[in-house]
């Protein structure tokens, strides 16, 4: 059994703290029987940010969302969300301010899309529910599907309905657990557009994903989660710049490709090719978040 000694050293968080922390996770440990799901987790998310948790299956992403939405309590450490902590995360006034979309929040299969959303609207006390529902259905391209039974929806449509349900009551903070997992590109694009619109409206979004393209497209900051702890975090562009090796890729007209370090020796070679017009394409080599994840953790994101 893994040791559960109380952490004696204080780790200074290397996370950037927003002016107002919507999410404040400090030195959190979470254990399940003999397994350590999260260890020494520190997360601080500011208002209006889209914060991405990247990690493979089993890395602790869903457990983190469970802690942040009051479905679990940490064994060590503290979790504060919008100034609320502990049992306050189960109170109606807190739940009214958040929207949650996870694989554990399904739809009522025998009811239509409209009936499912009307139920959610009633539970959250949404004013003018039909108007709001129709707005969101139009935003996500689901107007034609409003009368369909939930068990007749494709996976992409179901995910979009789940997202609408999470957005109906205009939450301040959204929790999305792999919102576009196994979706087609068209559905993924619709969801991304909806999320970016929410960000423009000032909504803070905490999402988990193992899709690094999604993280690059949406997130202001990302954190790499592996074996329950954050290995690296930061702004995606800055992370890519930090991990770039400064090399460039050159493709010549005859199809040969070269990877060159930017130094004097290779500059001459490059200049030679340029003089003879041999270059077909040239680009700087910037790693993807997936490349950085492999470099930092030693394993692939999927």
């Amino acid at each position: 059994m893994q040791s559960r000694a109380f952490p004696l050293k204080l780790r200074v968080s290397n996370q950037q703290k927003g002016e107002y922390a919507m999410i404040d996770v400090t030195h959190v440990y979470k254990y399940f029987r003999e397994e350590t799901a999260l260890q020494d987790l520190d997360v601080h998310v500011g208002k209006g940010e889209i914060y991405g948790f990247l990690g493979p299956s089993g890395s602790g992403k869903t457990t983190t969302i469970h802690l942040l939405t009051g479905q679990m309590k940490p064994d060590i450490g503290s979790v504060t969300v919008m100034g609320k902590t502990g049992d306050q995360l189960k109170q109606p006034d807190f739940l009214q301010r958040i929207g949650v979309m996870t694989e554990a929040t399904g739809l009522y299969q025998r009811l239509s899309v409209m009936d499912n959303l009307k139920l959610a609207a009633d539970l959250y006390g949404v004013k003018a529910p039909e108007k709001r529902i129709n707005e969101l259905l139009a935003l996500t391209g689901l107007t034609e599907a409003s009368r369909k039974r939930a068990d007749k929806l494709s996976k992409g449509m179901m995910q979009r309905v789940l997202l609408i349900r999470a957005l109906l009551h205009e939450p301040e903070l959204l929790f999305l657990d792999e919102p576009t997992a196994a979706l087609d590109p068209a559905s993924t694009k619709k969801i991304h557009e909806a999320l970016l619109e929410q960000k423009e409206n000032g909504v803070t979004i905490f999402l988990t994903t193992h899709d690094m393209e999604e993280a690059e497209a949406l997130c202001d900051r990302v954190a790499f989660l592996h074996h329950g702890s954050i290995q690296k975090s930061g702004v995606p562009k800055e992370l890519r710049r930090e991990h770039a090796d400064g090399s460039i890729s050159v493709e010549l007209q005859d199809g040969r490709r070269y990877r060159l370090i930017q130094d004097e020796k290779h500059a001459d070679r490059l200049a030679g090719w340029m003089k003879t017009g041999s270059i077909a394409a040239i680009q700087t080599n910037v790693p993807t978040l997936g490349d950085i994840f492999i470099e930092v953790t030693g394993r692939e994101l999927v």
Partner: peptide, 14 residues
């Protein structure tokens, strides 16, 4: 079974 209870419990409904 259908995973809808969790969404009910995450709503303001007590």
């Amino acid at each position: 079974e259908r995973k809808t209870l969790r969404s009910l419990m995450l709503s303001p409904a007590s």
